[in-house]
């Protein structure tokens, strides 16, 4: 079983921050752009890449930590 928070931690810093600021904290895209000091377009593409990466990591299980050792 993958832990989504552990997996999130493996994303690049700017993608991880955006997934938290926008996805969890409900910052507007404009505000997120101001906070990160980048154009809104960059926010959107980082958000898309971050979500794509999170999904891929969770699906392939490449990040499995040995939580359950046999």
């Amino acid at each position: 079983m993958q832990d989504i928070l552990t997996t999130l931690d493996q994303l690049p810093e700017e993608q991880k921050s955006l997934l938290l600021l926008v996805g969890v904290e409900d910052l507007s895209y404009d505000d997120a752009a101001k906070v990160m000091g980048v154009p809104v377009g960059t926010v959107m593409s980082r958000l898309a890449r971050g979500r794509q990466k999170l999904r891929a990591l969770l699906e392939t299980g490449r990040t499995t930590l040995l939580r359950r050792v046999k």
Binding site: D3, L5, T6, L8, D9, E13, K16, S17, L20, L21, E25, K34, V35, M36, G37, L65
Partner: peptide
Amino acid sequence: WARGWTSAAAAVAIFVCGATA
């Protein structure tokens, strides 16, 4: 505004994930 919030979000992630690491 600028630095504080980004690093706060990062801090949350690090806090959450750090325990396992």
